[in-house]
């Protein structure tokens, strides 16, 4: 219990630090970034809503005014999810843009990550279980080979073969011209078709890390004395492999997986760019290239919080899976 409480306090502390850094960094810039943005917005279009200007000020700070008051206002805005407006997508708010992009990424990357982890762990376990056999060589060498190929090249190859040459799948975008986002069958099947190629690209490279990690950890745990003793005790091969091998080998991968899941919010820039997929990665890329500070800042905050939450969950899970950690923490 002490362990879990400790992890939670630690999580809150880091979260607060991340949010506060996000508040401080723009205020450390010389001049008035909010004013600069307002003037850019004003130059772009006819009218700026004073409420929006206020929101920008809350997010980025005003040169005058009490820093503490600003901080309180900022925390309030963050709590309400009010991150100001994007000036590339004016007049849409940052929250709106993120809300648009997030489901695409979460579904595409989230699903492929989970599948990658499961497939990778299973293949790694199998390779370690049949160590030095042909199965092991095929899995280990095969995944190492695929891992050396540049990801964008693989993605482009997929587009060239399956979209441009064979016309099996659309080559770019998240949905076609014929449908519009909504809960219609047409849209869902269309979105699925569009997601196949990026998903395949992610699934080819996704499991590699988990395979190698799992195999190596498990080969090691199968060499430990407790495993040898389990064999000497007459436990079945399968039982030894699962309880004494995989059960211990999976521990480091759990943390890795949680962090990977947290990273989803930042999007997968490369894959979304190659396939022109309307997710967080592309949004991030666009915000950076057009110096859209409010949007960038919000995406960074999102990513940080995502990683933190995932880490926290991983810690909880780890404490549950590995009794040794609880002990060390509370001792």
């Amino acid at each position: 219990m002490v362990y879990f409480l400790r992890r939670f306090v630690f999580f809150l502390g880091t979260l607060w630090a991340a949010v506060t850094l996000n508040f401080l960094i723009p205020r450390l810039q010389p001049g008035d970034p909010a004013e600069a943005i307002v003037s850019r917005l004003a130059g772009q279009s006819e009218s700026v809503d004073p409420a929006q200007v206020q929101a920008i000020r809350v997010m980025l700070g005003t040169p005058d005014g009490n820093l503490f008051d600003q901080y309180v206002q900022y925390l309030g805005a963050v709590l309400h999810g009010d991150f100001g407006i994007s000036y590339t997508y004016f007049p849409y708010s940052v929250t709106h843009m993120i809300g648009q992009a997030l489901p695409w990424t979460v579904i595409l990357v989230g699903v492929t990550q989970i599948i990658s982890f499961i497939v990778g762990t299973l293949l790694g376990t199998w390779a370690a279980y049949r160590r030095n056999s042909r199965v092991d060589s095929v899995i280990t060498l095969g995944s190492t080979f695929l891992g050396t190929l540049p990801f964008f090249w693989l993605a482009l190859l997929l587009v060239y073969v399956f979209a441009i040459t064979l016309h099996w799948f659309p080559e770019r975008g998240g949905y076609g011209g014929g449908s519009s986002p909504g809960w219609s069958w047409l849209f869902i099947s269309d979105a699925f078709q569009h997601s196949v190629l990026p998903a395949v690209a992610l699934l080819i490279t996704g499991p590699i890390g988990w395979i190698i990690g799992m195999r190596n950890n498990m080969v090691q745990s199968l060499g430990e004395d407790h495993t040898r003793l389990a064999v000497a005790r007459g436990l079945s091969r399968r039982r030894v492999a699962i309880t004494y091998g995989a059960r211990i080998a999976i521990l480091p991968n759990v943390t890795g997986f949680a962090i990977a899941l947290g990273g989803i919010l930042g999007g997968t820039v490369l894959v979304e760019t190659v396939f022109n997929y309307p997710g967080m990665g592309r949004l991030l890329l666009e915000s950076v290239s057009s110096r859209d500070y409010p949007l960038m800042q919000a995406i960074f905050l999102f990513t940080t919080v995502g990683v933190l939450v995932a880490n926290f969950l991983a810690d909880l899970l780890y404490g549950f899976l590995d009794p040794r950690v609880r002990k060390v923490e509370s001792a």
């Binding site: 064999v231 005790r233 007459g234 436990l235 059960r247 521990l251 590995d322």
Partner: peptide, 29 residues
């Protein structure tokens, strides 16, 4: 194994599975 011939390994090594309780290791056997 174990029915006729059992063993105890060197104490400085970890001959018990670290992530399951002692009872589970008896149960396994």
């Amino acid at each position: 194994r174990w029915v006729d011939l059992s063993t105890v390994f060197q104490s400085s090594m970890n001959s018990l599975n670290p992530v399951i309780r002692v009872q589970a290791q008896f149960a396994d056997t």
